[in-house]
Computed example of a mutant assay.
Amino acid sequence: MSKKILITGATGFIGRYCLKLLKDSSFEIHAATRQEREDNEIFWHKCNLLEKGSAVRLIRLVRPSYLLHLAWNAEPNVFWSTPENLQWLSASLELLQAFAEHGGHRVVITGTCAEYDWRFGWCSEDITPLNPGTLYGTCKNALQDILSSYSHETAISTAWGRIFFIFGPHEHPARLISSVTLSLLRGQIAACSQGNQVRDFLHVADVASALVTLTTSDLQGPINIASGRGISVREMVINIGTSLDRLDLIQFGKVPNSPTEPPLLIADTRRLNDELGWQPSETFQQRIKETIDWWKLQFS
């Protein structure tokens, strides 16, 4: 009999890529969504997890042995401070408890680099202090703390995928790489900061691959999901401008840096690479090209 996996946030930026990978696995796939959907390979369940009791009803119906919990508010310029973070924390706890009480075996939940103390720049699961500066990061960190303690009190296996900076097809158009690419494709000025911030970017397909690999493993605790390499925002933007032959439209220094934005954020990926045995399938340059080509197709 196939093992059942339930994935939340299945229609989101990361979720759609996770589903593609899971379709090639031996899992019986169940996915939660707020809209009616049909798929011969996936059991879709219409469910609003923010409604009290909905998570319990869903778990009771599906009774999955694996849970990949991706759902959360990720709307740009909103998710950092929206009170909905508190609702997602509450809904996630309800989901986790129901999963454990109905025979769940393995759960992976996505976290964020915003849990770390950004003053340190280099983020290691075992070394860098956790000191979130936003409501989003605080709620995620609280969930991770509870997940860790709860796993010691129950029989479930748990892991926490701490995601850094993502890019790729289907990204929200307000995010950095997509917004710059769209501006240049439209022949519009791409106003940017000086771009000296160094960030750790990973393509969404690789993020999904790492999460699915983590879900099917027995590795526990927090694991950074990132490339482990830094690139400046300026270099990233120039890369896009060069690919589209529109460097003339890029204006650095037109957007002020946020006072809360750190100069450096890079992940220690030794747990991901050495303990999980995971590596990206393509080079960074190949992934950037894929992303730009996908946006080009949206204009063709």
Score class of each variant (00 low, 15 high):
222 P>Y: 08
65 S>M: 04
67 L>Y: 09
194 Q>C: 07
136 Y>E: 13
225 I>T: 06
139 C>P: 02
147 L>Q: 09
130 L>Q: 14
133 G>F: 09
271 R>D: 11
152 H>G: 02
277 G>F: 06
263 P>R: 11
116 Y>I: 03
176 L>N: 09
153 E>M: 14
46 K>V: 14
225 I>A: 11
62 V>N: 07
185 L>W: 05
210 A>P: 03
106 R>Y: 02
35 Q>G: 05
297 L>Q: 15
164 F>W: 07
127 I>F: 05
226 A>F: 02
209 S>C: 07
143 L>S: 06
84 E>Q: 15
202 L>F: 11
149 S>M: 12
295 W>D: 00
107 V>S: 08
190 A>Q: 04
219 L>P: 07
21 L>A: 09
140 K>M: 07
92 S>G: 15
187 G>P: 03
252 F>V: 05
203 H>P: 00
224 N>V: 03
67 L>A: 12
85 N>T: 05
147 L>A: 13
194 Q>A: 12
269 T>W: 01
231 I>M: 08
290 E>R: 14
167 F>C: 05
126 D>C: 05
276 L>H: 03
145 D>Q: 15
109 I>L: 14
229 R>K: 15
236 M>H: 04
147 L>P: 03
51 E>T: 10
166 I>Q: 14
123 C>F: 15
176 L>C: 08
297 L>K: 15
75 E>N: 05
65 S>G: 11
196 N>T: 14
67 L>F: 01
69 H>A: 11
100 A>D: 04
92 S>A: 15
13 F>A: 10
147 L>R: 01
223 I>F: 03
71 A>D: 07
173 P>M: 08
225 I>P: 03
24 D>L: 03
2 S>F: 01
88 W>Q: 06
